[in-house]
Amino acid sequence: VSPVPHRGAGRPQSRCQLSGTGMDAPTPLPTLIRKKRDGERLEDAEIRSFVRGVTEGTAQQGQIGAMLMAIRLRGMDAGETLALTQAMASSGRTLAWPPAWHGLVVDKHSTGGVGDKVSLALAPALAACGCKVRGSRGWDRDRGVPEPLCPAVPLPQVPMISGRGLGHTGGTLDKLEAIPGFRVSQSPEEMQHILARVGCCIVGQSAELVPADRVLYGLRDVTATVDSLPLITASILSKKAAERLSALVLDVKFGGAALYPTQESARELAQSLVRPRGPPGPLPAVPCHCPLSLPAAPGHSRCPCSCPCPLGSQPCPALGAGGVLLWQCGMAAGAEQGRERLARALDDGSALGTFEAMLEAQGVPPDTARGLCAGTPAQRRQLLGEAKVCEELPAPQE
């Protein structure tokens, strides 16, 4: 992994790298806030100046909040949104991968919803799809991972830079941090080591990776600007641009449990996400219904141990997005064949073995990772802890 300069760089060489251009003279932030507040268009250099102030800490939180609200109320056109995405993506390091991984670095991003646990299953399932494996009875008991039945071949690599909860939705990172020892902050070098060893990792923004998004993401949650279309678009695509992906699928949730209640509003977000076109080739954005219903085990600590896909059961909502990704990176002849391959990985235990290996690689003690993946529901709850006060609220109907 090597750093890519985010200041003084030239124009991007491909759509995969959304990089900002050179150093611009700083514009007083109150001037920019006033301009956007009054409905005027911000120039690319002005947007870069704002993001630089966010990243370097020269912008006050009140000023950042005021700009977020101005953007929420006045919006941004496609050019402004692209400039914001580029500036945020180049606020930190851009990942670079070994040549052997060319065409195999993939990811999926969801806009989130209550009970959304797809990433916990999809990342290890994709990483497990590179070669045939035996079922759970064929696992190496010391390592807890499946034994390969074929020679080593290039595997899909899944570097997920995920997010925390926003508004009423839960965050993938919050769920994973409920597992004792799990570390979401990883350097680019650590990410490459985990990918080489396991094939997937799930991390968060950091001082090195998309630091501007880390600041803006947290402030959006406390300034009632979570549902801003350009802010959502820039937040998601800046993280994906920093990953230097070969293929990406966007899972756009709608319904009572999602940020956007209707399919029409979700479609607008999907179109906004597709328009900047970070990675090369088609960029699918799939609207997915997220109805207002409680998950079987609500709460950050209960979600990881109730997620059905890593535990090998089906059907699984990850299959659609995963099938498209396997097709896009050449690991399947079509999306349906990709779905079938992913289903086998979930069913034969290889995805679960990879999930366990990922937990260990990101700091979870081996006994804890093994207990979480192989223990009974009661044992998993004991490992993750229980709230001091629990109240059962029965539903009047199914």
Results as ranks from 00 to 15, higher is better:
30 P>S: 01
80 E>P: 05
302 R>S: 07
255 G>N: 10
375 G>F: 11
359 L>R: 07
275 R>G: 01
41 R>G: 01
90 S>Y: 02
324 V>D: 00
73 L>F: 10
102 H>M: 01
218 G>Y: 02
117 K>I: 13
116 D>A: 12
142 D>F: 13
41 R>W: 00
111 T>V: 07
378 A>L: 11
93 R>L: 06
333 A>C: 02
108 K>H: 08
320 G>M: 07
155 L>G: 13
6 H>C: 02
299 G>V: 00
111 T>G: 04
18 L>H: 09
233 T>R: 08
361 A>W: 03
230 P>R: 12
100 A>V: 03
250 L>Q: 06
392 E>Q: 12
65 G>N: 13
64 I>R: 05
134 R>I: 07
63 Q>Y: 02
91 S>N: 04
141 R>Y: 06
351 A>D: 05
156 P>Y: 13
233 T>Y: 07
206 S>G: 05
64 I>P: 06
5 P>V: 02
393 L>T: 11
354 T>H: 14
306 S>K: 07
111 T>H: 08
333 A>S: 15
38 D>K: 13
307 C>F: 07
381 R>P: 03
337 Q>M: 07
164 R>G: 05
234 A>H: 04
150 C>I: 02
42 L>Y: 10
45 A>N: 13
69 M>Y: 12
203 V>C: 11
262 T>K: 09
64 I>Q: 10
78 A>G: 00
163 G>M: 05
67 M>D: 02
392 E>Y: 14
242 A>D: 01
47 I>Q: 01
77 D>A: 03
337 Q>G: 11
8 G>V: 03
55 T>F: 02
25 A>D: 14
321 A>C: 07
14 S>C: 12
32 L>P: 08
185 S>V: 15
332 A>S: 11
244 R>Y: 06
290 C>S: 14
122 L>E: 06
153 V>E: 15
318 A>I: 05
280 P>V: 13
341 R>P: 00
329 C>I: 11
345 A>E: 07
29 L>I: 15
9 A>R: 14
171 G>P: 00
290 C>V: 13
92 G>F: 05
299 G>H: 09
178 A>H: 05
321 A>K: 00
233 T>D: 08
23 M>A: 13
335 A>M: 06
270 A>R: 11
63 Q>D: 13
311 L>C: 00
193 H>E: 15
323 G>Y: 00
251 D>Q: 11
9 A>T: 01
268 E>I: 03
29 L>R: 05
272 S>H: 10
294 L>R: 14
247 A>R: 06
292 L>N: 08
120 L>P: 00
374 A>C: 11
333 A>R: 14
267 R>Q: 15
387 A>E: 12
52 R>P: 04
133 V>F: 15
161 I>S: 05
95 L>M: 14
78 A>M: 03
288 C>F: 09
397 Q>K: 09
45 A>E: 15
226 V>G: 04
240 K>Y: 01
207 A>F: 02
136 S>L: 15
5 P>C: 03
271 Q>R: 14
276 P>H: 04
200 C>W: 08
65 G>W: 04
50 F>D: 01
209 L>T: 12
245 L>K: 09
270 A>P: 10
31 T>G: 06
128 A>S: 15
